[in-house]
Amino acid sequence: MSSSDIFIGETIGTAILILLGAGVVAAVTLKHSKARDAGWLAITFGWGFAVLTGAYLAGGVSGAHLNPAVTLGLAIQGGTEWGDVPLYLVSQLFGAMIGAVLVWAVYYGQFRAHLTDPEIVDLQPVDDGMVDQKAAPQAGPVLGVFSTGPEIRNAVQNVLTEVIATVVLVLAILTQGLNDAGNGLGTLGALITALVVVSIGLSLGGPTGYAINPVRDLGPRIVHALLPLPNKGGSDWGYAWVPVVGPLIGGALAGGLYNLAFA
């Protein structure tokens, strides 16, 4: 597998993942969206289908990691060369940012209508730093479209939740076996992984919104900070380390557990 294969596959696959995943959150969240208030089931299944689509498109090109936690787990397990890891991570972050910009473009009118509605704007905190505990669920009126946030702000619990959920995801991927290229998911693996993501969302997503993917959270959060959205509020950088560190720990633990129990 060439460096260009990794870059193209991971960039496109992750961009599609975020476009469809963050897109379903926008559809459910924003005013003047036909899917507004469709609820948690729509979000969890939307993210599952987003994973399925991104993994299916990129599987034959780059192995469809689409997630640094998966890349790390595969490197520890032995299915991915350590020398390829930096390129995977950079490509995934770039793709996540592209996907977030595309969501903004698709829902441009809805973003503007939502963020100029007095009922919505009045809910946002003013500070761009650490968000007040009581205001955290409304931290930036549209931040939840781009990134995750906790319902109860407790760093230990939040990290532990992300670690456990990511171990489930990465271990489920590793125990499926690898595709013919030896570095990722085949077509059936993409479907199984998508269903696992839906299960994680339904069962473990309540506390933190189940990032389970560092670039899924960090890339769109950067885009949220940069986009010219009126009255968008802060990007909650005080929490941003949790959905990066937690999934990376989870991916590493899953790789080690696989080698101990399944190899």
Rank of each mutant, 00 (worst) to 15 (best):
I6L: 10
I6T: 04
F7L: 15
E10D: 03
L20A: 02
V25D: 00
A26F: 00
K31D: 14
S33W: 07
K34M: 05
A38S: 15
L41K: 11
I43H: 12
I43K: 12
T44E: 12
F45N: 01
W47H: 12
G48S: 05
F49C: 00
A50Y: 04
V51Q: 03
T53I: 14
T53M: 15
A55K: 08
Y56W: 13
L57A: 15
L57K: 07
L57D: 01
G59F: 09
A64C: 13
A64E: 03
A69Q: 06
V70H: 12
V70R: 09
T71H: 08
T71P: 03
I76Y: 04
G78C: 09
V85M: 07
V85K: 10
Y88T: 06
Y88L: 03
L89M: 15
L89K: 02
G95S: 09
A96P: 03
I98Q: 10
G99N: 12
G99A: 13
G99I: 10
A100L: 07
V101S: 00
V101N: 00
L102Y: 06
V106C: 04
Y108N: 13
T116P: 06
D117G: 06
D122R: 15
L123A: 12
P125K: 13
D132T: 08
G140L: 08
F146G: 01
S147H: 05
G149C: 03
P150W: 08
P150Y: 01
I152Y: 13
R153M: 11
A155C: 03
V156A: 14
V156N: 01
Q157A: 12
L171P: 02
L171C: 01
Q176F: 02
L185C: 08
L188E: 11
G189P: 05
L195G: 07
V198G: 11
V198H: 11
I200M: 05
L204K: 08
G205P: 10
G205H: 10
G206L: 15
N213W: 10
R216P: 02
D217G: 01
I222R: 14
N231H: 15
K232F: 04
A240D: 10
V242N: 08
V245W: 01
G246P: 01
L248T: 05
I249T: 04
G251F: 01
L253M: 09
G255E: 11
